[in-house]
Simulated scan of single mutants.
Amino acid sequence: MSERSALHATFTLERDYLVPPERTFSAWADPVSKSRWFAGVDADHALDFRLGGQEVTRGIGPDGWELTYTSTFHEIVPDTRIVYSSTLYGGTTLASVSLTTVEFHATDEGTRLVLTEQGSYLDAQEDPYWRERGTADQLAALATTLLRPDEE
């Protein structure tokens, strides 16, 4: 039997967007918009944005493994906060479990988004740095999506 391990990590990312919180929040709630910046073009993505609803993203990782990321929504406060828990599987192996809180704060220029994720990374299947870097990339893609005129 291989050795088991659990690595725990928390990160917080803050980003400013030049659109109001309603529009930033909408990019998380709308399935077409969310797929555009969150999942990527080669992924299978489904979003049921409601309390108890799920978001499922399936794709192939750089190592060729099938990745399945599933989230369940525990709190949705329109234009203010989203709280969800997630699992990531590589094939049939559980790689991580996390709790994420996304806050949307109005600023003079638009929105300050604060995302905090607390994770358990299991048996060295995923590295917390990879998750933080991937999440930062998604938030950069969100910025690009919010600049699109068809997102109005």
Rank of each mutant, 00 (worst) to 15 (best):
V41H: 09
A27M: 01
R81C: 13
V19C: 06
G61T: 11
A106P: 07
T107C: 08
E117P: 00
E55L: 06
S33W: 08
Q118A: 00
T100A: 13
E75T: 13
F49K: 05
E3F: 13
L51K: 09
L51I: 09
A29V: 01
P128I: 14
V32H: 13
F38C: 06
S35N: 11
Y129K: 12
Y121N: 10
S35M: 03
E109M: 03
I76R: 01
A6W: 00
A43K: 01
T116N: 07
T92D: 15
A136V: 01
H8F: 12
R81Y: 05
Q138E: 08
E14V: 02
T10M: 06
H8T: 04
D150A: 13
D137V: 05
S71A: 15
V41D: 14
T92N: 12
R112H: 09
T100E: 05
T92G: 05
F104K: 08
D42G: 08
E109N: 03
L99S: 14
A141S: 15
E132I: 02
G91R: 10
E55K: 02
W28R: 02
T24Q: 03
E152I: 07
G134R: 03
I76H: 02
D63I: 08
R4P: 00
S71C: 15
T111P: 01
T111C: 13
G64P: 05
E55H: 07
E152C: 03
G59D: 08
V97K: 10
A106T: 14
P62S: 15
R58M: 02
Q118H: 15
T68H: 01
A95N: 08
Y121E: 04
